[in-house]
């Protein structure tokens, strides 16, 4: 059994309304140094599957390659 962490984020240049809202809200709270906030998804997977298979899961279902990038972190044996 292996454990994976998957981070799904919008591709560069795609407007992220919740991220932009958080960015403005932080500025309203007085945090002046905030350049950019992006909000994405974090997915934990425990599976008897190799990295290639997890990559396929991302391509087919967990991320939409038209608008999203994904990054898989292998966490080792679960």
């Amino acid at each position: 059994m292996a454990r994976y962490e998957v981070y799904v984020t919008y591709k560069q240049g795609i407007f992220d309304p919740p991220g932009a809202t958080a960015e403005r809200a932080l500025a309203n709270l007085g945090y002046e140094g905030v350049r950019s906030v992006k909000i994405g998804k974090y997915i934990q997977i425990e599976a008897d599957a190799g990295l290639e298979t997890v990559r396929e899961m991302c391509e087919r279902l967990l991320a939409n390659p038209v608008i999203e990038d994904y990054r898989i972190v292998t966490e080792g044996e679960a």
């Binding site: 407007f15 919740p18 939409n64 608008i67």
Partner: peptide, 17 residues
Amino acid sequence: LTEAHLLPGALLRNTGL
């Protein structure tokens, strides 16, 4: 239909939230 690749593109969150 976009997710099924029968149509191009994708539908994102409305910009005004």
